[in-house]
Structure formats: structure tokens, C-alpha cells
Design a protein around this nucleic acid. Structure first.
Lengths: 245, 245
DNA sequence: CGCCACCTTGAAAACATTCAATCAAAGTGG
DNA sequence: CCACTTTGATTGAATGTTTTCAAGGTGGCG
């Protein structure tokens, strides 16, 4: 949380009071089930997870890839039951935040509430971009955009170096994320390789020519809002919150 | 706002203090521009608007249809510049909420902050469902699902009767919303008509066989979260907020 | 009337899926 | 350590969906 806003001592204490020791989650386990009542949100400390929605006939859409530092279920907390599932892709370590804690946080520490709101807003922006990707970009562009997005996001949390990151996701999941068939993902991946943009193998992605790829895709990273919250949210640390300021 | 939670007298007063008279917006005008700094969010009192994102080469994805009672830019408020545009589809009347008011609201009236957070969460759920639609459903299903979603949403705000609503959107916009070409939207619409499910003409949609359509589509409305916020959020009206409760 | 916005249609081409195999690598249990 | 199973990647061929391009058609409106 201290990445998002500058915490006062009291805010730090409040967070410490509700933070839980990390819980281990096994690879493949569901963190949140679709259609189930769930009273907790989860902060991914380590590992990857997916938000995905399953249709009655088995078709599936992956909504979002969750990497270390991301929240799962922060918005699902608002509803009696979750409309999508969250599943661990690798063994993971997560911390939980209960609804009661969230609610209490909004009441006792409004700035932390705003910081959580900011996090949810960022999440929405990424899903909206995902929708643009699937709705209006070619298979080739979808894959390239996803790889660049993940490179940026993982760099921020120190899980990618300047060009590569571990990618524990198979082609079937990629297909469900990008609105394509598994076979077509495979063939498109081959084109990206042939064009010298990426190397994908052994659960690892290497971006071989980032500048070229960004140009080929017209990549824009604005939606990632990577600069973090604007100053007005980060720095409002006066002891008495300036109501109406 | 009183639709979302049960307001205390003081909360009502706080809202009244920041509420603005409705502003008129002409059909086709941009309410929020992509890439621009914007300090206000907007509540649509009357009329329709679109959230959409434009790519450099002109391709466009409509992210969400906004109808009376919806907010525009509630999350964009968190970022220095908006990553998408909001445009009025019809003449519209909107009320504004400035960033400073939002921020103040979180500080002085945490429950109202939570209610806004709930609204943003619902918006995210609808965009996520839109992603499922575009990523994993056929053209026929996409169109049918959209019509049913709009029927439900418009009924809640009294802009649809039991089977029909005004629909001020042309086929090109529909195409940009559903990730299809305009021509294909046209042909798919004809199939929906031929199957006796809908009548679409003169900017008006009539659902002729709702039960049959829902069955043909495997329609689920859970993502709409139409029951409103759960009781814990609606009813917490004690004078002293029960922190840590 | 004539223009404009929007809807409709046809034909060809491009894109993507399905089905069905094959292959390699990574577990599993004795 | 070796058969056996499982998982994931890859390929080819046939099929189907969706787009593109191009050409009308329709109705409202100045």
C-alpha cells in the first residue's frame, strides 16, 4: 500500500492491524469460486492467478492475469456472490482482506479507502483495455499487446528484467484470454517468433525487439497508469484530513 | 444515490451541498475526451452516452453504454488523463462531481464513499461481462445478450416497459461495441428478427420472446447485480459509524 | 429535388476454427 | 530406472465465420 500513497504512521498501524500472514495456495486451486459467497479479497504476494468466467457450456473467458502485488476480489467484495472465479496458476502466497476490514478502513481511514478505490480504478482500466484488445485488434496484435503489458507490469514489481519474464501460462489459457482458439494462438505465436519480436519457450517470454514490437502494434501504455496515483492522492498527509479542501 | 443506500439526513445534506443543476449536452458532443485532463465525473440524468476508446488507425471499441442513472468517469477521476472518451449519443442532461468533491466525500462521509465504490464495482462487472461477450460468444449471442442487458438496466430506471425500449444507436456503433463489422451486425440482426426474438426498427427495440431468447442464449443476469448493494452496505445507518464492527 | 445518414445485399477474400494426428517433455508408480 | 500416463506444442486439411469491397435502397429534411 505504501507504493500507492505516502502513509502516515497511524495509517501504517491500521494496515498492520488487519494484515494477515500470507496463506499458501496450491497451483490450480480456486481462490474465489464463481457463484459462491465470499467475504474476502486477496492480495497476491507471490505467484500468478487468473480471473476468469466460465459459461454454462464450458466456454471460458480469462478476464485478467494477476501477478504479485495485484488484488483479487476487491470489487467482488461488494456483491453477495462473485460473478467470476479466481484461480491460482502457480503455487501462490496471498493475504486476505475481509469485507468487515474493508468497510472499517473506509470509515476510519478515508485516504486508505481512496487508495483502494484507485486500485480498483486501475484494474477497471486494464480490463477495458483487454476489451479493446479482444474486440478490435488482430490475433497478432492481441498477443503482442499482452506480452508488452505483462513486461511493464512485472517490471514494476521486480518480476521481470529489462526484456524477459517467467510466464507460467499455456496456450489454451492464452486462447481463453485473447478470444482465440488454442491452435490459432500457436500459429500466431510462431509468426511473432519468425518476425524476431519474441522468444517464448519453457514458460518464459523474452521480448527480443521491444521498440520494433511497440511500433508494429501501435502500443500505448497510457491505460496502465503506471506513474501511480496523482500527487493529490499520494501526498495528502495532513494530520486532520482537510475536509472540503 | 438514495437508490443505493439508505441515506441519513446528514448524508442527504452533504450530497445536496455538492450537487449541481443538470447541464445540457448536445447529441454527438464529447463529455470526456480521450487523453485529456478532466477533473469531473458526470451523472447522466437523461439521455444516452458511450464510453469508447479509439485506436491510432481509427478502429474503435465501445466499452459501455451509459443510460440515465449511470455515472461517467467515476474511475477516470483517479487518473491524470482519461484513457477513453465519453460521448453523448442523444441530447443529454448531466450533473457533475468534481474530484475535490469526491475526495471530500470519502473523508467526511465514508459510507457515501463506499456507495460510490459499489457503483464503480458494478461498472467493472458490466465491462467484464462485455469482455466475455466479445471474447467468447458468437455474433448472435453478443447481440442478444446486449439487448437483454439493456432491457434489464433500462427497466430499473423506468426507461423500458416490460418488453421494449428506445435505442438511439446505429449499426456501426453496435459493431464497434460488439467487435464485429457493421455488415455482420446487419445480417445477424436479421437472423434475430427471423427467429422471432426481437423487432428492431426506428431506433426502438422490442423483445418479442424474452423467455425464448434467454434460453437460446443461456442468458445469466447475475453480473448485473441488480438487487443493489447487499444489506450490510444499504442499512448501516447508525449515527456513529461502527468502526471495526 | 437532391443530399445525407443509415440500412441492406452480393460476392470474394481473409481470418479463424475444428478435427484429427503427431511429437516431445514431464510426471508417476512400481 | 523403466514403462506408462499426462500435458502441452505443433501440423495439415477441411470447414465455417466474418470482413471487405462495392453497389444499391430508403426515408427524412433543407
Amino acid at each position: 500500500m505504501s507504493q500507492i500513497i505516502d502513509l502516515t504512521r497511524e495509517e501504517s498501524a491500521a494496515l498492520a492491524a488487519i494484515s494477515t500472514r500470507g496463506t499458501r495456495v496450491a497451483r490450480g486451486a480456486d481462490i474465489i469460486l464463481q457463484g459462491e459467497v465470499d467475504e474476502c479479497a486477496f492480495l497476491i504476494h507471490d505467484g500468478w492467478a487468473l480471473r476468469h468466467r466460465q459459461l454454462a457450456d464450458g466456454r471460458r473467458q480469462v478476464l485478467h492475469f494477476l501477478v504479485p502485488g495485484d488484488w483479487a476480489g476487491l470489487t467482488a467484495l461488494m456483491f453477495p456472490e462473485s460473478d467470476h472465479a479466481v484461480t491460482a496458476v502457480t503455487d501462490a502466497v496471498v493475504a486476505t482482506l475481509s469485507l468487515r476490514d474493508l468497510s472499517a478502513l473506509f470509515q476510519s481511514h478515508p485516504r486508505l479507502g481512496l487508495a483502494i478505490y484507485w486500485t480498483a480504478a486501475q484494474e477497471e482500466a486494464m480490463i477495458a483495455e483487454h476489451l479493446v484488445n479482444v474486440g478490435r485488434r488482430t490475433a497478432y496484435e492481441r498477443l503482442g499487446n499482452l506480452f508488452l503489458e505483462l513486461l511493464f507490469r512485472l517490471q514494476v514489481v521486480g518480476h521481470a528484467d529489462h526484456r524477459a519474464f517467467d510466464f507460467p501460462v499455456n496456450q489454451a489459457v492464452l486462447a481463453d484470454a485473447l478470444g482465440l482458439s488454442q491452435v490459432h494462438v500457436n500459429r500466431t505465436l510462431q509468426r511473432l517468433r519468425k518476425d524476431g519480436f519474441v522468444a517464448v519457450s519453457d514458460r518464459r517470454v523474452v521480448i527480443l525487439n521491444q521498440a520494433g514490437l511497440e511500433q508494429a502494434l501501435d502500443f500505448e501504455s497510457a491505460y496502465l497508469h503506471m506513474a501511480g496515483p496523482p500527487a493529490w492522492l499520494r501526498r495528502r498527509i495532513s494530520k486532520r484530513p482537510a475536509v472540503g479542501d
